[in-house]
Design a protein around this nucleic acid. Structure first.
Length: 759
DNA sequence: TTAGGGTTAG
């Protein structure tokens, strides 16, 4: 999936880059960053924002003030309560401040209002003020305060409240008892929680649900299931809690079984069940079940709010059904998507999470253009943008090489003063790495300074991608010494680094470390890395033995890697043997077909070479045409082999011809072995001479000053001859040339490449 | 008492 945009959507790339430029201009005046979750509610202070009911409430409020009744305690409490119920806490606070007479109800109404919107800090502040004024809290006040303590992890204050309740002889009803139980469970103080649970006289289903949810939260699945099974009456929340908790703990299959059991024998779904069920089928990617749940939402006439809509969008996106994640701005944003009559019609997106889900859905499915278009639309429509959206957009920039846009979004994040968290940091590192700027990737890495494994893995991968294998290994060692546990992806990246840098011993050691110390079972990716490690180092026999010893002969990816090594080390006989094996397994990818065809071409077996190509056609294997890009003064210039469409083509070809002549004088010679067509000698050399990367480089040289580094991108691997050509060019012209291919970067300088001719 | 979106490799 690397560089998906470049590899699979060549024709639209220029259009897309124009879009990027347009977006860059559009961005600056509108983009604002909203703090995480700040959209949960808002203080409405403008009459224009109010509903009819709110306007009536304001009218009533004004009348009450006019006749001086606000100082009547009951009337004041009534108005305050109405504002709290309409979640207009700005006005509620104002009424509260204006009231000269307040009683415990006054304080409780306001405190419970803030507790309901999870504004715990305000709740605790008000509670302190209330105590200072000598007002004695009641059960409702205490429940709200405890709720805020548990959401803010304020265990000590909660314990203080608990003590106060005991000292003052307040009766524990089920609500107060459950609030306290929830506090201990949320703060993971299970000693207190269990003691309290046992001592509670008024235990209800809610008490059990809190304990079940808490057990799942700390990963005690057995205890949770035991409690769940022993509970004679299970309400809908019990089912929801246990299904969601199991899913969060990674027991998705068990969660699914319980969902089926719930459908059969349990209570009817509520809104929570729908969102949990949709999240479950998203993570399991069971589209059919997801559709059934969606059908149930419609059948039950559940009002599709932002939350359920987000879950629906996410479910369809995770199943790769972007059309079904139907969106109202389809015509505007995804204009090239076909209308699907079966598509479920969703509501207009009014919720920031739904928008960012849609953006990430496009990114996860490799549709970077649509992600950027949606983002542009959001910016233009002044929809709030938060860290989630930005993280996805940076990811889109990384994978499509939109460096300028990525940099601008980064600048705006800095300007907004937002802290860069591990998710965004990893995304930014990846963007700078994939756009060829390793220095800025390091800067983000140091600045983020987090023990997050993805952050470290991104940086290790960055070093590997830029040919700095030893540095990648060093960073890996630093990470281990800091006590950070590597995951399976980290091992893929460090093994890749070893294989690309020829670090045979280190690679073998890390493979053992992964299994023996970290207990990670090697997957096909790790085995492939190991075969690559031996193969690239020329240990073909060792690689072959590794495949047999580990029982990998059915893994076609492993053989494909081995094939590339055979080719690299010019062991044509072995390469043919592997290719034919893969051909019979029907597991060749486009690259391997081309390789096999090349092998036959080298041996002048033209009929067999032609047969391979016809097999490719019969089996529908598509080879993407090679294409290279160079950006000159904000303009992207794309070239394919033998391209004559560029306005300056005459100049490019004349210069290239002259350059090849000069290079030959200093030792460069064309490697005609790699010509796929059945042509020989001069004609083959001629075809090599017009490979897309040579054209892009020639254009770069004639269009820039002599000291400017030349950066080009390619949608396939660089061929041997072009690699050689670029090395000589960097030496002859004393020019730095940086090439990004499908998997990595090549930094050419003084006739050498950072990959050490190992790619 | 229970529910939503973002990051790393091949």
């Amino acid at each position: 999936m690397v560089w998906g945009c470049l590899r699979t959507r060549c024709s639209s790339s220029i259009h897309y880059l124009k879009q990027v430029r347009f977006l860059s201009v559009a961005l600056s005046p509108h983009l604002e960053f909203y703090p995480y979750k700040s959209h949960a509610y808002h203080y409405s202070s403008c009459a224009n924002d109010c509903s009819t009911d709110e306007i009536d409430l304001h009218t009533l409020h004004a009348k009450v003030i006019k006749v001086g009744s606000l100082q009547n305690l009951d009337m004041g409490n009534h108005i305050l309560n109405l504002y709290v119920k309409s979640q207009n806490l700005g006005h509620a606070q104002k009424v509260f401040d204006d009231m000269l007479n307040r009683d415990v109800r006054t304080w409780t109404i306001l405190i419970s209002g803030f507790a309901r919107v999870s504004s715990g800090g305000t709740v605790l502040k008000l509670f302190r003020e209330m105590q200072n004024e000598g007002v004695c809290p009641n059960q409702f006040t205490l429940s709200s305060v405890l709720k805020s303590c548990s959401s803010l992890n304020e265990l000590n204050l909660g314990k203080e409240v608990h003590g106060w309740i005991v000292v003052n002889g307040i009766v524990f009803d089920s609500v107060l008892g459950n609030s306290l139980l929830d506090l201990y469970v949320k703060c993971e103080d299970f000693g207190y929680a269990n003691k309290l649970f046992e001592s509670m006289r008024e235990r209800d289903t809610v008490s059990w649900n809190i304990l079940i949810g808490g057990s799942l939260h700390i990963g005690d699945v057995d205890k949770a299931i035991e409690l769940f099974r022993s509970l004679p009456f299970k309400d809908v929340a019990t089912w929801n809690t246990v299904i969601d908790g199991l899913m969060q703990d990674g027991f998705e299959r068990t969660a699914l079984e319980l969902l089926y059991e719930m459908v059969k024998n349990g209570p009817l779904f509520n809104r929570f069940t729908f969102t949990i069920a949709l999240a479950l089928v998203s993570s399991l990617s069971i589209l059919e079940l997801g559709k059934q749940i969606h059908g149930r939402v419609l059948r039950f006439r559940i009002h599709v709010t932002g939350l359920i809509q987000t879950c629906l969008i996410n479910m369809y996106c995770k199943s790769g059904k972007l059309d079904k994640a139907s969106i109202p701005f389809r015509e505007t944003v995804a204009c090239d998507r076909k209308e699907n009559s079966e598509a479920f019609c969703l509501q207009p997106l009014t919720d920031i999470v739904s928008w960012s889900t849609m953006v990430s859905g496009f990114v996860q499915n490799g549709e970077y253009e649509d992600a950027l278009k949606t983002f542009t639309y959001m910016v233009h429509e002044q929809v709030e943008v938060d860290l989630f959206t930005v993280t996805s957009i940076i990811c889109a920039c990384a994978n499509s090489g939109a460096f300028e846009l990525g940099r601008q979004v980064h600048a705006l994040i800095e300007k907004s003063g937002h802290r860069i968290d591990a998710h965004l940091g990893s995304s930014l590192i990846d963007m700078y790495v994939k756009c060829g700027n390793l220095e800025d990737a390091w800067m983000i890495f140091k600045q983020t300074n987090d023990g997050n494994i993805v952050l470290w893995t991104s940086m290790i991968s960055g070093c590997a991608m830029h040919g700095q294998g030893r540095k990648a290994v060093w960073l890996f060692e630093c990470m281990i010494s800091e006590g950070i546990t590597p995951n399976e992806v980290t091992f893929v990246t460090v093994l890749t680094a070893c294989s690309h840098a020829g670090l045979l011993e280190e690679g073998s050691r890390y493979f053992r470390l992964m299994k023996e110390v970290y207990g990670i079972h090697p997957g096909v990716e790790h085995f492939t890395c190991m075969v690559d490690l031996y193969g690239r180092a020329g240990r073909l026999k060792q690689a072959k033995n590794f495949i047999h010893e580990n029982g990998l002969s059915q893994m076609s990816a492993v053989w494909r890697s081995f094939l590339a090594s055979c080719w690299l080390h010019k062991n044509i006989e072995m390469a043919r043997w592997v290719s034919e094996k893969l051909l019979h397994l029907n597991s060749l990818d486009a690259g391997s077909y081309v390789l096999l065809s090349n092998i036959y071409a080298i041996e002048h077996r033209w009929d067999e070479a032609a047969h391979v190509r016809s097999l490719m056609q019969q089996r529908g294997v598509k080879k993407h045409p090679a294409q290279s890009w160079i950006q000159i003064k904000n303009q992207v210039h794309a070239f394919i082999m033998g391209d004559r469409s560029h306005p300056q083509d005459a100049e490019i070809y004349t210069y290239l011809d002259k350059l090849i002549g000069r290079l030959k004088e200093v030792g460069y010679s064309s490697d005609v072995h790699l010509v796929m067509q059945d042509v020989e000698g001069e004609q083959g050399e001629m075809l090599l001479g017009v490979h897309s990367e040579k054209l892009a480089i020639a254009y770069g040289i004639i269009s820039t000053s002599s000291r400017t580094p030349i950066r080009i991108m390619k949608n396939l691997r660089v061929c041997n001859d072009c690699h050689n050509f670029i090395k000589y060019t960097s030496l002859l012209l004393d020019r730095e040339i940086i090439v990004r291919d499908t998997h990595r970067f090549h930094h050419f300088k003084y006739g050498h490449c950072s990959c050490g001719d190992y790619w």
